[in-house]
Nucleic acid binder design. Structure first.
Lengths: 241, 241
DNA sequence: AAACTTAAAGTACAAAAAACTATAAGTATA
DNA sequence: TATACTTATAGTTTTTTGTACTTTAAGTTT
């Protein structure tokens, strides 16, 4: 990259170079869902600082790459999966948040089906583990703050994004969908009304398939209609439950 | 600030210094409201790059300060007002977004009453002006993208923040409040129901004062109850209109 | 000064939606 | 064949929304 030669910042006469001294990192709250419980993937750091502590999945961003591609690289390295759903939620910039320098971090969250995730060996992670969001360990850096903000954001965005579908298999029952939303929002819904509302939105299409090997009436399976969602999203619809 | 000496990033063996080469800036979408219209404050740049173009209010962040204090400094310089409501909404990081180097910018929005705003001479602004959000000029950098995302975010946050009150005088009528929300959301509300909902929330307290010099029945004046709002916010309430 | 205009504030009621209750249906297991 | 469990839906009650209309309080016009 060409180094700048002109002044940009005019409040005091100092060159732009002086201001190009920030580090940029990305920390991702990887949400999973398993048997009615919302989980978060954490890694045990194998390097200083905070060696041995649990931390969010994250890394520094290379000066030549952007956040979205860094995020994909980081998650693909860790999970072996590419094209995972991921969204930015907040930037954390406390001056002393990183012990080794001025590093600003951008918080992302991502949604994966726990069962699709398989741990991959990594240079910076001694181990990785799913934690229930109700039983979290102490975290490195300001990762507790980032995680809390991530959970808070997810709970809101769930209301106007089809976030839930990322956490379910491609064929699911309305009961599973309801349990997921109840776990995400820590709130119970009325079954008949939940069904009515979901079906009215036309976001899911019924399949001619049913659950198998269950010791009760088998539920009909549904699939998420992505085309229909993209249509609705343009009009700015709300996911009212 | 102490320069780091240890390795942090282990994917390749390079020192942290190599990664401390980002610039950090802040761009603020200053929203105003005047006679039923939502406006944005733009500045005409008097310095390169994009000299002469309209741009959002923004500046580089000093390595020793954080975003919140930079934001306050920038807005106080420009408007002469301090303690203005301001909130982060998204970080923009395209590699080529700034012609002079790798500068990542954090988008904020702020809400001010246009009539309280008085332009202040500034080193980097030839002039400043309010624009209606329906008649915007071409903007410098990626400011169009930032502005669009800011408007989109405001429209959503209006639903669970008392954002509206920042844009009204301390004593206002319910009619004014309703017009403001209609302008912000480009949506009409039913008057009796709007009143019921607002009053039910207990966020506004009626005063024993009335409009004056209007050629019709004068409306009762109300004030926003900040204490009550802080109570409700902890429970995570929604502003359902 | 009486009649008119304008908008606030509130009332009444029908229509729609949501919340709640109850019950029938389908499958596996005891 | 009974029972345990869960899906699926019908129906009833309660709450919310939308519409129309009434009353009140000013200023404006004739």
């Amino acid at each position: 990259m060409k180094k700048p030669s002109t002044y940009f910042f005019t409040e005091e006469s100092s060159s732009l170079n002086e201001f190009l001294s920030f580090g940029l990192s990305l920390d991702c709250v990887v949400f999973g869902y398993h048997e009615g419980e919302v989980q978060v993937l954490l890694v045990e750091r194998s390097v200083e600082p905070y060696k041995g502590s649990w931390a969010l999945v994250g890394d520094l961003v290379h000066p030549e790459s952007d956040l979205a591609s860094s995020a994909n690289r980081i998650l693909e390295n860790l999970t072996g999966l590419s094209g995972i759903f991921m969204e930015q939620f907040h930037t954390f910039d406390a001056v002393d948040r990183h012990p080794l320098g001025r590093v600003v971090t951008v918080g992302y969250y991502s949604l994966v089906q726990s069962k699709h995730y398989h741990p991959v060996a990594s240079a910076w992670a001694k181990s990785t583990r799913w934690f229930s969001i109700s039983e979290l360990p102490e975290l490195a850096f300001d990762h507790k703050e980032i995680l809390d903000k991530g959970i808070q954001t997810l709970k809101r965005r769930v209301r106007y994004r089809p976030v839930g579908f990322e956490l379910l298999p491609s064929k699911f029952t309305l009961g599973q969908l309801q349990s997921l939303y109840e776990a995400l929002l820590s709130e119970k819904f009325d079954k008949p009304n939940f069904r009515k509302k979901i079906l009215r939105m036309d976001l899911v299409t019924p399949l001619n398939e049913y659950q198998e090997n269950v010791s009760h009436r088998p539920a009909k399976l549904y699939a998420f209609d992505e085309r229909r969602y993209n249509l609705l999203r343009k009009e700015g619809f709300a996911f009212e439950l």
